[in-house]
């Protein structure tokens, strides 16, 4: 029963990732695509957590932290590119 619930939630996480992928490809504006990419990485984190419950291991927990850090840095880089037009500034205005 417990395993069945985990499988069903994995299925729905995959479904939400597919819907977010549609938004990445089709999205009318750039912020939509960035938000959809962030949603995909959050769903991926949930999927890895469910897998680590399913396999009875704690070796996968480092993947969650790494994915969180990388998606955070990536989202900030995209947001800066949309807002300022440049990712890393040479000398910022004070």
């Amino acid at each position: 029963m417990f395993k069945l619930i985990l499988m069903i939630s994995l299925f729905f996480l995959t479904l939400s990732m597919i819907v977010a992928l549609y938004r990445v490809i089709k999205g009318p504006s750039m912020p939509d695509r960035v938000q959809a990419l962030d949603t995909i990485s959050i769903s991926l984190i949930g999927g890895v957590a469910i897998c680590s419950v399913l396999f009875h291991t704690h070796a996968l927990l480092e993947i969650i932290l790494i994915l969180g850090i990388l998606s955070f840095v990536g989202t900030i880089a995209f947001a800066r590119f949309i807002e300022r037009g440049v990712v890393i500034e040479r000398k910022r205005i004070k």
Binding site: F72, V73, A77, V87, I88, E89, R90, R92
Partner: peptide
């Protein structure tokens, strides 16, 4: 390296 990238993103290269 990703931590240094985050520093570069939030501040600037000169800093």
């Amino acid at each position: 390296a990703s931590a240094l990238t985050l520093l570069l993103l939030a501040f600037d290269i000169e800093w």
